[in-house]
Design a protein around this nucleic acid. Structure first.
Lengths: 126, 126
DNA sequence: TCAAATCGTTTACAGTTGTAAATATCTACA
DNA sequence: TGTAGATATTTACAACTGTAAACGATTTGA
């Protein structure tokens, strides 16, 4: 019963923190987010609440507070968002998408090598 | 004064049709979209209206109807959506994004070759 | 010339999102 | 044991979205 619903941009920010630091308290999440966002603690708590309602986040009481952890796995969430992005922005065409990102970002020699290796290991579809 | 605001998923569907067929009448857009979507004509007209309000779409009267065409260029819109997607879903990291899309989609031998060539021509950042 | 069809404009409405304050609960110190 | 402080839950609210009907103006076939 996991990940039936999509998560919004702001919610992604929160989940990214959770996935990297779980289990974690609301305080912890708020503090980490404070480094990047300008959200009030109340705002973050709202997101926490919505995410649990969406079934993406779960918690277990620890003393007087909650310990949060992701319910589903990040990969499935990434898959869903990526699919939707590919469809709407690139009309479902993978190569134009890849071309766009390669062309519009700087890549180190190592990264380029890594991507070459990835292509080498890629089995061609027929 | 172009493209100050983002466009929604449904609006992307409409713009994709416009970018490929402009200039085009509302009827034309509605008919092409009917092939893929189940929207009522009224719904499409609402999107047309919102898109012009957002400055993404413009029109010129042609007889008793309008001829629509995109205001800004598609590339800038793609850039904006891509940037936001990269940031929220992949924490700004291009290589993981590229890896995900290569791994999760089938690519023909030609496409793989095309991507290799792209990497070969890519100048490494230092 | 009158009614029907066609266009574009307004209005509608519920659900989601960003943003946050108000309130209720609970824990722990004094 | 009562109260301050921290936590979580409710409530708020405007903007944006998806979805579409209602309305008003205009063109055109009968």
């Amino acid at each position: 019963m996991t990940d039936r619903i999509g998560i919004s941009d702001a919610e992604w920010q929160v989940m990214n923190v959770v996935w990297e630091n779980q289990p974690i308290t609301a305080q912890g999440i708020i503090q980490i987010l404070a480094l990047k966002q300008k959200w009030s603690p109340a705002t973050v708590r709202t997101f926490l609440h919505r995410l649990t309602k969406k079934g993406v986040l779960e918690f277990e009481p620890e003393g007087n507070r909650y310990l949060y952890r992701a319910a589903g796995n990040k990969t499935s969430q990434i898959r869903k968002a990526s699919k939707s992005f590919l469809e709407t922005v690139f009309n479902g065409q993978t190569v134009p998408l890849l071309t766009h990102f390669v062309k519009s970002h700087r890549l180190s020699e190592q990264e380029i090598a890594e991507l070459r290796k990835l292509l080498d290991g890629k089995e061609a579809a027929r």
